[in-house]
Structure formats: C-alpha cells, structure tokens
C-alpha cells in the first residue's frame, strides 16, 4: 500500500467529511471501514463514525463493543491511525447541551423530567440532529496550541442507508424550518453549511444488482436535489470474469459444448459423474445470466456520470486483513 499511495492522486482532495451510504446489504459498513483505512496513510488520522447502534465497526475490527468514546481501532498503512466512534444520541445530547448552553442544573433537570429521553427516542429526527451535530464537531475540531491543526485529517461517516440518507443529512434544514431564530437555528445552519460544502462528499455503495443500482440512482438524484454533494459510487462484491465472452454467450443460450467440458475435466484429472457435469453447466448458465444483468446495471451506473470504484467479491468473507486489501484497492483507484 505504501508504495501505491503516491501512485495516484485522490479524486477527493479537499474533502474532509466522507459520508458512506448504500442500500441495506451492500456492505456499506465494510466499505466505510476500508475507506477510513485508505485515508489513514502516512501519519494521517481518520475518525470512523458509526451511527446506527449496530456495533458493526467493532465486529469488523475484532474489537469489543465501542463505548461513546473515540478509540483507536487500527493502524493505517504507513503509520496512520483509524479512530472509531459509535455515537450514542442520549450522551451526545447531554454533551451538546453542556457545550453550547452551559445548562448545568437545568440540563440535569431536563434529564430528570424525561426531556432527554423524549428528544432522543420519541422524536427520532432529533437523533439525526445530534448525530450530524457530533460529526460536525469532529470535522471542525482543532488541536490546542498554536498550530491549530485539525485533530482529524478526515472523518468517515457510516451513514444510514440510501432510503433515509437525504432525510438524515437534510434534517438540519428541517430544524431550520421549525426554529426561525435562536441558537438552534444558528447551529442547524452551520451544520447544513458544512454538509452542502465541497468539504463533504456522499459516496454511495452498490452491488451490480437491479435494486441496489436503482436505489443508487434514486439517492444520487435525491441528494443532488437537496443540494448535498454526491461523491463517488463504490461497486462492491464484483466478481472477476472467469470465462470468455463467447463462452458466456453460448452458456446463456444453453449451447455450451458439453463434450469439451467433459474432456477438459478428464484432462484435469477431475472425475465426476454425468449428473455433476450437468450441475456445472447449469452453474455456468446462471453465471452467464448474471453477467448479462450486471452489464445492464453497469450501463445504468455509467449514466450517473460519477467517479466509480470497484471492489472485489471476497468469497471467504471479510476479516481485518481483507479490509486492508479493500483499502489498497480504493487507494489504487483514486478513491482516497
């Protein structure tokens, strides 16, 4: 990886907040984690934020469940650092109240009467306000002392899925609509200012399947309409082509030369029963059908005209080592 890091400039120079969304099941958390590693080269610190209370980051990095606390979970390639944070809305609200309003006794009273519980559980939009507020704070946080450098070189947000993303990121515009004046309005405007600026990029993770691609197209349109900066499209779990185009065409038509396959198996020293050869041919036909569908999905994605990155299918599943491999692929393609 270190050797690769200089090989290609990042497509996202100047972006400090990388928001990663995608349809459920596309591997959004995995991609967010890989991107955080990819951004942590050469002494850079990246904060990886999880917001859905799933502890998916802890699982991926093989660490115990994360408290509401920033913790180093991995060392980046070339000596960087990945810090992770699982945002807890209730704690975030108390912290927020304390930081901005110095409420002291009144803050405790609010908790006692259930206002905190009310705000974080009953009014779920409030959760989104707090989470985006926390992310805003982390992106802007600076070190004490003269340098005043940013504490984090980049923040990666493992965000809610595509179906909720525009609503989630736009929640502060909603708040601004409710509060015409006052400190809440000021805070909401500042957060929307960051989220709609070139410092933010919203990346969408997809698979080469119809529903995720459709949702990706919908999300890209929705984000653009809301003035939120659409980043790249990350195509996950791409299978390598294992057969020639001509063979795939023949397989799709059910005209794969059975005898040739049987001869090849014999030459390879693989002895199987006739039924198994039929099974293998059926697998190839299914594969061909899938490849044809994937081709159509690639066309749709191309039509979105966004930088597109591909990550391979890892048939053994994703472990920590695999995350580094995915990070390297992202760097090599210019995603980080």
């Amino acid at each position: 990886m270190a050797s690769d890091s200089g090989a290609r400039e990042s497509d996202w120079e100047g972006v400090r907040l990388h928001v990663v969304t995608g349809k459920g099941g596309t591997g959004k958390t995995t991609v967010a984690a890989a991107l955080a590693i990819a951004l942590s080269g050469e002494g850079r610190r990246t904060l990886l934020v999880e917001v859905e209370g799933r502890q998916g980051i802890a699982q991926l990095f093989d660490s115990p469940p994360l408290p509401y606390e920033e913790r180093t979970v991995a060392v980046g390639p070339g000596g960087g650092e990945v810090v992770a944070l699982a945002v807890d809305p209730e704690e975030a609200l108390l912290e927020y109240l304390d930081m901005f309003y110095k409420l002291g006794r009144a803050g405790r009273a609010l908790r006692k009467i259930g206002a905190i519980d009310f705000a974080t559980t009953i009014a779920p939009g409030m959760r989104d306000v707090l989470i985006t507020g926390k992310v805003y704070e982390a992106v802007r946080r600076r070190k004490a002392g003269r340098s005043g450098a940013h504490v984090y070189d980049a923040v990666v947000l493992d965000a809610p899925p595509t179906g909720r993303i525009a609503r989630f990121l736009g929640v502060n515009a909603e708040v601004a609509g409710l509060a015409k004046v006052g400190p809440v309005r000021g805070q909401a405007d500042a957060i929307m200012g960051l989220l709609t600026s070139p410092m933010t990029a919203v990346h969408v993770v997809t698979l080469l399947e119809e529903m995720p691609v459709q949702e990706t197209a919908d999300a890209v349109a929705e984000l653009a309409a809301a003035g939120l900066p659409v980043g790249g499209i990350i195509v996950n779990a791409v299978r390598e082509p294992l057969l020639k185009v001509a063979d795939l065409t023949a397989a799709a038509k059910g005209r794969l030369p059975r005898a040739e396959v049987a001869d090849g198996l014999a030459a390879a020293g693989v002895s199987v029963r006739d039924g198994a050869i039929d099974g293998l041919l059926a697998e190839v036909a299914e594969h061909a059908e899938r490849v044809a569908l994937e081709k159509a999905q690639r066309r749709t994605l191309k039509g979105l005209a966004r930088p597109t990155y591909e990550l391979p299918l890892l048939s053994e599943g994703v472990d920590l080592g695999a995350l580094y491999e995915l990070a390297e692929r992202l760097c090599a393609q210019g995603a980080a």
Binding site: L243, K244, D247, L256, L265
Partner: peptide
C-alpha cells in the same frame, strides 16, 4: 489447454 473447462472449474 482446455480454457473453457478451467473457467468452469
């Protein structure tokens, strides 16, 4: 030889 069979495997 047998690229097709190799791909199938």
């Amino acid at each position: 030889g047998h690229p097709l069979a190799a791909g199938v495997l």
